[in-house]
């Protein structure tokens, strides 16, 4: 909802500057994007159709993809075992176009809660879940998730029992991570489509829990 803010030139209530949008004055960086894109097309590196197709492919990657993977893992123990053994192969088995993604799936249980971060940049399983949320890329999340994960989780409304072990995963290199959240109670007998609707983006990063039915 980029137009909901009261003052285009100002700072939001949370102290963060608004992002330039299509109808605001053209910025230096937008001019650079147009120029780079046109030069790449003129030199035969890419085409407008290829760029449009790439945007469509990224737009088609959403947390709903991951939710389907999680729901299948909840209902199909053999699939869950394959997902934990080789996350990328399991996603390809479900016909998701994940490109070169090397995916590691980590499982939340009664005793373990997993949390994903990238302290060095903002690595994210984008070829499955789409682009990361803004907060995932912030200094605050990147700095604190490895040192005080429980305090960070409380800011997301997740309070963990003291006996639950937190496992933080810093995506420092070639792997990307997805959390298989614990299946909520009261979901016995639900089919995988209904279950997938309970799986939120944040529950697959570890900053949230699935919805309860």
């Amino acid at each position: 909802m980029p137009h909901d803010h009261p003052d285009h030139a100002g700072i939001s209530a949370s102290g963060h500057p608004f992002r330039p949008d299509n109808d605001t004055p053209l910025t230096y960086w937008q001019r650079m994007e147009v120029a780079v894109r046109e030069l790449l097309i003129e030199k035969g590196v890419t085409t407008p159709a290829e760029i449009a197709a790439q945007i469509d492919a990224m737009d088609a990657r959403t947390p709903a993809n991951g939710a389907r993977v999680v729901a299948r893992a909840w209902t199909d123990p053999a699939f869950k075992a394959r997902l934990l053994a080789d996350g990328s192969a399991a996603c390809r088995e479900m016909d998701f176009d994940i490109g070169a993604l090397n995916l590691v799936a980590v499982e939340n249980t009664d005793d373990v809660h997993n949390l994903i971060v990238c302290t060095l940049c903002s690595c994210y399983p984008r070829n499955l879940l789409g682009l990361p949320p803004d907060w995932y890329k912030t200094r605050e999340y990147r700095s604190r998730a490895v040192r005080e994960p429980r305090a960070v989780l409380r800011e997301f409304g997740v309070e963990l029992p003291a006996q639950t072990r937190v496992r933080v995963h810093d995506s420092t290199a070639d792997m990307r991570y997805i959390v298989i959240p614990a299946r909520p109670p009261g979901t016995e007998g639900m089919d995988s489509t209904s279950l997938a609707a309970l799986v939120t983006r944040d529950s697959m990063i570890g900053t949230g829990l699935p919805r309860c039915p």
Binding site: R165, R167, H169, S171, T172, A173
Partner: peptide, 8 residues
């Protein structure tokens, strides 16, 4: 006893 995993 919480843990931190990283790729090195």
């Amino acid at each position: 006893d919480d843990t931190l995993d990283a790729e090195i």
